[in-house]
Nucleic acid binder design. Sequence first.
DNA 1: GCCAACGTTGGC
DNA 2: GCCAACGTTGGC
Length: 148
Amino acid sequence: MAKPQYWLIKSEPSVYAYAQLEREGRTEWSGVRNFEARNNLRAMKPGDLCLYYHSNEDKAVVGVARVLTSPTEDSTAPGEDWASVEMGPLVALQKPVTLATVKATPALGEFPLITRSRLSVAPVTPEHFQHVLELGGTKLPKKLPKAS
DNA sequence: GCCAACGTTGGC
DNA sequence: GCCAACGTTGGC
């Protein structure tokens, strides 16, 4: 399989928290209504890994989610030009990486939470992804379950 | 094609 | 609750 791409996805925990994704096992990542975020969604491939950020209440990256399917039409906007993918949980971070921590970490100065604070789906470099995992005291499982 | 008005996001 | 940032809309 091709190398996974890395992304940052955001959700308000009161709307859809990472714990809910763990409970449900998978969900359609829909409702994105911003062109740039949509284009990022459309660039996702099964197996890509996403840092899962809780906006507003937690203001912290709390887990890693995984893209399970190729992008399709957003079922919440039938006939319109939006996109969605199926998303599944991979691991919760040992400790959440807060926005304050990200801001206090010089190596993460270009992290999209800082540079593109309102974009809900953003690409992340492998270096940033790795750095956030380390700050979260978390390692990815050696063997990833099969996507899709 | 410009830009003011408006709506939404999200940190504080 | 406020407000800054910023994307989108619509009048011209």
